[in-house]
Design a protein around this nucleic acid. Structure first.
Lengths: 360, 360
DNA sequence: CTGAAAGCGCTTACAG
DNA sequence: CTGAAAGCGCTTACAG
């Protein structure tokens, strides 16, 4: 492949002159620049190799990373992740940059053979390929976070984990979850079941005991359940009696299986889910079990994903698109050194539709 | 930031030993590797910088690029592009790599001040940041293609342009378009209007004359219109009388404006659109003009996007997700040198729903 | 206004 | 089994 030296030789100038022609053309005469560019064109030189220039100047690669839990395939089916990406790409800055999507499919860092640091470091993209990163919903102490830290990579975390000194874009998960549970309590429900995606990235399913959620490395779910506990105990009940069912996955179909177990085992009159995807699984289970929503069973979700409104799903709206927009804005501030940006906590809202009704 | 030299010094070994510890640990004694890794961990070394290693070894960056026409914001709203990305990320290989989305928002290369080559080369991501690229729907001779070529970058083109020696994943656009037009001809329509996104990236709107489409740099639309011409003339009509309206954008709302002009000016009984997004714009226009579809106006789209079925839109289905899957598979073959992959032409299918009916 | 030289972080053929 | 050395493609302070 033709490089800068070739162009310099062919143009009869120094390599430095060619470099200046691209990066600081004002330093050269117009004629010189024109001559160099013409030569470059003739040789099929595609411009300074970003790898070489980035290495030399410690400079920018021109790409922003988004670290996503699980595979990219999951990211492109999950409504929340899609909304987050939609928000991120609203940044006009990105039109001149590239967006690098980085999957972190190794859910459980403990399973890695290489020790905590290398598990994250193994991923090429974490090793200098991007100028900054938006991290979405990783478990506490995920090795990728250590890697980013070690590299002094400008970063913003969306939702989880909360890391001292790193800007967080999120919501008040505990309060929002309390509001979610309070809605069904106010409708008179007492036999309530809770459906969560996962408390640990170990694929475990089924009923979770207390220490499993109090020690969960997933900040969002941990805080949400704490919110449920507070609201439930404020109503005068014992939270330990409330079944918390772990789906072990993020898709509605897996949720439907877990919901079926929950319904058959505990006969709840209301199910509170930590995402709309989980709640949609409850619809599927109810259909199979021939239960009517909301007559026989109330369901409330979380997110207000695009699928929620058509289904009439009562839910807590959280502004995912705005999260993406804010995360991108803060990241660019960090990269520019414009300011040391703080955390950004966005509002949530209870959206009452037709999937919740008074207890039978 | 701590680098390999620091680790070597702290561990009391040569820099080469550290490099081997990461890339070819079998070359070292187990104890040596353990000692080096422990030292790296202690210093917070995040592993070999990808920029340094890539420069030295001419090796992989660990990222695959997708070059997208227009902004990323557009890419994340357009149903076809989303489906394409969905297909691409089905590749299991991507779980260990990163996917770099590269927007090419400068629609019209002719407008660039820097000459054809530099317009493309200006984009950092084109200059060595990715190991290979999937290119989607660029106009003929887009400078980004020259840049990729000049770099010998493994590449696959989806839909357009067709470039000698570069694998193309696409459909038989001409034949599919003929089938699309034939459907409305067979329903007895003669006053037909054609709605296309754009024939050139110059933002022009309204009625297009013959040379504008015969010389269009957009391969797909050019071939589609040629397909319309063939079907129309086979039916014994003069194609020059058929209005071809250019929307100048890709969104349904812009299409609705163009459709309104088309309906008011030519009073067609059927509108043939080059995408479902355009066809959805016709629904919007019809509603405003108080026309019933299909009683007063038949509409046929192209793509079979997710929105088509709920609307009852008759359309030509093209397998966008599969295009993405094939493009990724071919690209990885190219990168691996496994084989020189050929073009891949996928089937299309007429899907008759309720938006087309016999001519009034 | 231009050119020679140092060095960014790394890998690998080669000598020991 | 280990280490010294060259060089990947580039940028920039410095001397002319």
């Amino acid at each position: 492949m033709v490089n800068m030296k070739d162009v310099a030789r062919a143009a009869g100038v120094s390599q430095a002159a060619v470099s200046y022609a691209y990066s600081q053309p004002a330093k050269l005469s117009e004629n010189q620049v024109r001559h160099i560019m013409k030569t470059a064109d003739r040789l099929g030189y595609a411009g300074p190799n970003i790898i070489g220039s980035s290495l030399r100047s410690g400079g920018r690669t021109g790409a922003i990373g988004v670290m996503l839990m699980d595979t990219l395939q999951y990211a492109f089916t999950d409504a929340s992740t899609k909304s987050l990406l939609e928000g991120i790409v609203r940044s006009r800055r990105l039109n001149a940059l590239a967006l690098t999507l980085i999957p972190l499919p190794h859910g459980d860092p403990a399973r890695s053979q290489d020790g905590p640091r290398n598990a994250g470091a193994a991923h090429a993209a974490l090793r200098g390929l991007v100028d900054g990163a938006i991290v979405h919903s990783l478990p506490d102490n995920h090795p990728a976070l250590l890697t980013l830290r070690a590299r002094n990579m400008p970063m913003v975390i969306v939702d989880a984990p909360a890391l001292p000194g790193v800007p967080l874009v999120g919501i008040r998960d505990r309060e929002a979850a309390s509001a979610q549970l309070r809605h069904v309590l106010e409708l008179g429900h007492q036999r309530i079941g809770i459906l969560v995606e996962r408390l640990r990235p170990d694929g475990q399913r089924g009923r979770a005991n207390r220490s499993r959620w109090t020690n969960s490395p997933e900040r969002v779910v941990r805080e949400r359940i704490e919110g449920y506990r507070i609201a439930y105990e404020e109503a005068g009940y014992h939270f330990d009696a409330v079944p918390i069912i772990e789906v072990g996955a993020f898709d509605p179909h897996s949720a439907a299986q877990a919901a079926t177990e929950l319904i058959n085992g505990d006969h709840p009159t209301a199910i509170v889910a930590t995402s709309d995807a989980m709640a949609i699984g409850v619809f599927e289970a109810a259909k199979t079990l021939d239960l009517d929503i909301p007559t026989d069973l109330s369901v409330i979700g979380f997110d207000d994903a695009p699928e929620a409104a058509p289904l009439g799903l009562t839910t807590i709206r959280q502004p995912m698109v705005e999260k993406g927009e804010h995360a991108a804005a803060i990241l660019f501030d960090l990269i520019d050194g414009t300011q040391t940006s703080d955390c950004m906590i966005l509002p949530t809202e209870l959206i009452i539709r037709s999937s919740t009704a008074a207890a039978p």
